[in-house]
């Protein structure tokens, strides 16, 4: 791909992504959202983050790998337990990474 085409590609994606981010932050007071939309907003973080987490852990090379031999799955379960018990962000990530490395390097 030529430099010009790549720059154009990056700028179009950048603009589009900005418009996604800006959309409702900008539009909020321009029209009134139905009440049920407001009520459902509190489930956005849980729903979107889960939709990012599960495939990142369970899908490996396009295949579902839901077994105890999957290092990412085991490390994630450990991270979930730490997060659940302590609510500590750093500790959760640290335990997840350490367990992951222990499994893949031993």
């Amino acid at each position: 791909m030529s430099d010009f085409k790549l720059i154009l590609t990056i700028l179009i994606i950048g603009l589009g992504t900005f418009l996604f981010r800006f959309s409702f932050i900008y539009l909020y007071d321009k029209f009134k959202l139905p009440k049920w939309v407001h009520q459902s907003l509190r489930y956005v973080p849980a729903a979107v983050l889960s939709a990012l987490i599960f495939p990142a852990i369970i899908i490996n090379d396009g295949q579902i790998w839901a077994s105890y031999s999957n290092p990412k799955l085991m490390a994630s379960i450990a991270a979930v337990i730490v997060a659940w018990k302590t609510k500590k962000l750093f500790l959760t990530i640290a335990v997840g990474l350490i367990i992951y490395w222990l499994i893949i390097f031993t």
Partner: peptide
């Protein structure tokens, strides 16, 4: 590359998700 550093991101999501869960 073998460190699998990209795994850090789902871990940040897990940490944030469980902190906010109700």
């Amino acid at each position: 590359q073998e460190l699998g550093l990209e795994f850090g991101i789902p871990l940040t999501f897990i940490a944030v998700l469980l902190k906010g869960i109700a």
